[in-house]
Nucleic acid binder design. Structure first.
Length: 583
RNA sequence: GCGGUGGUAGCUCAGCCGGAUAGAGCAACGGUUUUCUAAACCGUCGGUCGUGGGUUCGAGUCCCGCCCACCGCGCCA
C-alpha cells in the first residue's frame, strides 16, 4: 500500500478534486483541511460550511455531495463521516497507520519525504553575528540556538542552506575600542585575559565618550581612520578580531554550531561605495543634515524616520553594510531566500532595509529574493528588565553553560548513582546544555523570555530532560530485548489499543509539523509536537507492555517504539539537542 | 505622538490559514511500582481568554475603540 509522507496535503488535494467533480463552483471552494480533535478523527474539512452558507444551500447536503465524489481509493485509507452542521471527518485506518510506519523507517526516508517542501531552494541564514571584543552572554544565546535549529530544519526539508555569521567587526564600537586601547589599556590585564580586558576597555571608552564630547569626537576620528585604511588602526583592528574569534569558536564548538561563512561587516567595506552610488542614482538616497539617508514617502513612519546609510562624518554604519550584504547574498550566493536572525528591537531597521532593497533592486533590474527578519524577544532578568551588555552583570555564556552542566550532573548523580562518573559527566553535558537550549526554543520566539535558573533547569513538563528521558526509556526496551531499534520490524499488525492508535497518529503528524515549523520559522511548533509525542509514548508505555509473548502484539509495539525513537531523535537533533541512550 | 510585541487557570506557557465541550506543566490534593528506567503515569481542583463594540451560522483567533506592560523611533548594532 502506498502512503505519502504528508497525508494531510494529499487529502486536501483529494477533497478539492471531489468538490470539483461534485459540481461545486471551481475556485470558490476551499477544503479548509485541519488537524481534528482526536475525538472526531485525524483531519476535518470545514470548507463546505462557508461555501453552503454563502449560497444559501444546506451544508450537510453539500457535504454529502463532496463525500460521494471522493475517489474510492481514498476510502482504503480513511473512514469518512459527516458531523454537526457539515464537518467532514477523516479518520486514518489502522492499516494506513501501519503502512506509514513501515514506509518511513529511517531518518533518510523521513528526510526524503520532507524534502519536497524546499527542494531546489537556496537559503542564506544569517545568525549569531556577535560583535567582536564583547564576550558572548546570555542575551546572545537565543539567536544562536534558534538560528542553528532553523538551518537544520530547512536543510532537512530539502533546502540548500548557507550559514553565514555576519560578525560585527566594523562598527562604531571599533572607534571606542581603538581609542580605548590607545588611552586606557592595562598591558598586564590584556596579557592575562585579553577578552575581559578588551571588554573593560570598551566599557570605559564608551562611558568616557558619553561623558565628554571631545572624547566622542576622538572616538569617531579613530573609526574614520580605520575605515580609510590607516595602518596602525588596521593592525589594532586585526589583533582585536583575532583575539575574539578564538573565544567565539570555543562556544560554537560547545553548542555544535557551525557556519559555512563568516563574512563580517568588514568584508563589505569595499562594497559600500557601490551602494551609495546606485541609491543616489536611483533617487532613493538623499543628503539630510550632512548624512546620506533614504526616506520612504509612502510609509507612514519612514517618510520622516530616515534610514541613515552614511553618517555625516562620512563613515559607514550597519545600514550601509547590510545593504551591501543584501546585494552580495543575492548576486554571489544566488539566494532564493534570506533569513536574518536578530532580536525584535531591530525590526524598524530591517523593515527599512527591505523596503530600500526592493526599490533599489527594482530600479536596477535585479532579481529579488525573499527576505525574512526572524526576530525574537529579549532575554529578561528576574526583574523583568532586559539584560544589557553595559549595565549590571550579564551572565557570560561560558559560565551559564558550565553551571547548567554542573546542576545537571548533580541531578544525574542523584537519580542514577550506579552509572560510572565519566558517563554521568557525558549525560550532564547533554542534559544541561540541552535544557538551556530547549528552553530558548520551546517558547514562541516573538515573546520576551524571562531567564531563571529554575525555569531553564526545570526537569518537568515541556523540557529537554523530559524528552531525553523518553528517548532513553525506548532505548532501554530494545537493550533489554537484545534488539536493534533500527532493524526491520517484521510481522507487525496494525495498531489496536487506544494508546497504540493515539501514538501512531501522533507519529504520522510529524510531516505536518515540519511544514508548519519551517513555514513560520518557529521551532516551538516542533517542540510542542515532540513534547506531545513523548507524552503519548509515556501513556502508551505504562498501559501497553511491549515485551510480551504474543508475537504479533510484540512486533507492532516494537515497531511503535522504534518509530517513536526515530521521530524523537530526529526531531531533537533538528533542534540541536544531543540524545542519549541512558540517563 | 507614531509603530512593534504581548495581556489565556494562582504562576510559566500552548492554542497553526475563524470551527465542535479553551489545553499543558508547576503549585494544591488524591492514587499507581512482584511487570520493559517512577526524571514516569492516572485522577481532582482551577479560566467573564485585558476591556467595550462590530463582522459571522460560529470569535481566544478577524475589524474598530480603549486600558496596561515592555520595546523602537537621525547619525549604536
Amino acid at each position: 500500500m502506498h502512503v505519502s509522507f504528508n497525508i494531510g496535503s494529499d487529502l486536501e488535494a483529494a477533497v478539492s478534486g471531489a468538490a470539483q467533480a461534485a459540481g461545486l463552483e471551481p475556485g470558490a471552494f476551499s477544503p479548509e483541511l485541519r488537524a481534528a480533535d482526536p475525538r472526531h478523527g485525524d483531519f476535518q474539512a470545514n470548507g463546505v460550511l462557508g461555501y453552503a452558507k454563502a449560497r444559501k444551500l444546506n451544508p450537510r447536503a453539500v457535504a454529502d455531495q463532496v463525500v460521494a465524489a471522493l475517489p474510492a481509493s481514498l476510502r482504503e485509507h480513511f473512514e469518512v463521516g459527516i458531523a454537526g452542521p457539515g464537518f467532514i471527518n477523516f479518520r486514518l485506518k489502522p492499516a494506513t497507520l501501519l503502512a506509514w510506519l513501515c514506509t518511513y523507517d529511517s531518518a533518510e526516508h523521513l528526510k526524503s519525504g520532507a524534502a519536497a517542501l524546499y527542494h531546489g531552494q537556496r537559503y542564506v541564514v544569517d545568525f549569531s553575528s556577535p560583535n567582536t571584543a564583547k564576550q558572548l552572554h546570555v542575551g546572545h544565546i537565543r539567536g544562536m540556538v534558534i538560528g542553528e535549529a532553523i538551518c537544520r530544519l530547512l536543510a532537512f526539508c530539502g533546502a540548500e542552506v548557507i550559514r553565514d555569521n555576519h560578525i560585527g567587526d566594523w562598527g562604531t564600537q571599533f572607534g571606542k575600542l581603538i581609542w580605548g586601547y590607545k588611552h586606557l589599556r592595562n598591558d598586564a590585564a590584556l596579557a592575562a585575559d585579553p577578552l575581559e580586558e578588551l571588554e573593560r576597555i570598551y566599557k570605559a571608552a564608551d562611558a568616557a565618550a558619553k561623558a565628554d564630547p571631545a572624547v566622542l569626537d576622538a572616538v569617531r576620528a579613530e573609526l574614520v581612520l580605520l575605515q580609510s585604511g590607516n595602518p596602525e588602526n588596521r593592525a589594532l583592528w586585526d589583533r582585536i578580531n583575532t583575539l575574539s574569534a578564538g573565544a567565539f569558536t570555543s562556544i560554537y564548538r560547545q553548542l555544535g554550531i557551525h557556519f559555512d561563512h563568516q563574512l563580517g561587516e568588514s568584508f563589505y567595506n569595499d562594497k559600500v561605495p557601490q551602494v551609495y552610488t546606485e541609491l543616489t542614482a536611483a533617487g532613493l538616497a538623499v543628503e539630510s543634515q550632512g548624512a546620506l539617508v533614504v526616506f520612504h514617502p509612502e510609509h507612514p513612519r519612514f517618510k520622516t524616520q530616515p534610514f541613515i546609510i552614511r553618517k555625516s562624518d562620512g563613515a559607514a554604519n550597519y545600514a550601509s553594510t547590510d545593504l551591501a550584504t543584501m546585494l552580495y547574498r543575492t548576486e554571489h550566493f544566488r539566494a532564493d531566500a534570506i533569513a536574518v536572525l536578530t532580536d525584535a528591537r531591530q525590526s524598524d531597521h530591517f523593515e527599512q532595509l527591505w523596503l530600500t532593497t526592493q526599490k533599489w533592486f527594482a530600479h536596477t533590474g535585479r532579481r529579488l529574493p525573499r527576505f525574512e527578519h526572524v526576530s525574537f524577544g529579549s532575554i529578561l532578568g528576574e526583574d523583568g528588565k532586559a539584560i544589557k551588555t553595559r549595565s549590571g552583570d550579564p551572565i557570560k555564556l561560558q559560565a551559564l553553560l558550565a553551571e547548567a552542566e554542573e546542576r545537571a550532573f548533580a541531578l544525574v548523580t542523584e537519580k542514577s548513582p550506579e552509572l560510572p562518573e565519566a558517563e554521568r559527566r557525558d549525560i550532564a553535558n547533554a542534559v544541561g546544555v540541552g535544557a538551556v537550549r530547549y528552553a530558548d526554543l520551546a517558547q514562541n520566539r516573538s515573546s520576551d523570555y524571562i531567564f531563571s535558573w529554575e525555569k531553564i533547569l526545570a526537569f518537568e513538563g515541556n523540557t529537554a530532560p523530559y524528552l531525553l528521558y523518553a528517548v532513553t526509556r525506548i532505548h532501554s526496551i530494545f537493550r533489554k530485548a537484545g534488539l536493534d531499534p533500527a532493524a526491520a520490524m517484521a510481522g507487525a499488525t496494525p495498531p489496536e489499543t487506544p494508546e497504540e492508535l493515539a501514538l501512531a497518529r501522533k507519529l504520522v503528524g510529524f510531516a505536518t509539523v515540519l511544514n508548519l515549523t519551517t513555514a513560520q520559522l518557529r521551532p516551538h511548533f516542533l517542540c510542542t509536537y515532540l513534547y506531545e509525542l513523548a507524552g503519548e509514548f509515556s501513556t502508551f508505555y505504562v498501559a501497553n507492555k511491549v515485551i510480551v509473548d504474543d508475537a504479533p502484539v510484540k512486533a507492532r509495539r516494537l515497531l511503535l517504539c522504534a518509530r517513536t525513537l526515530l521521530v524523537l531523535e530526529t526531531g531533537l537533533q533538528l533542534l540541536g539537542l544531543r540524545t542519549l541512550t541512558r540517563m
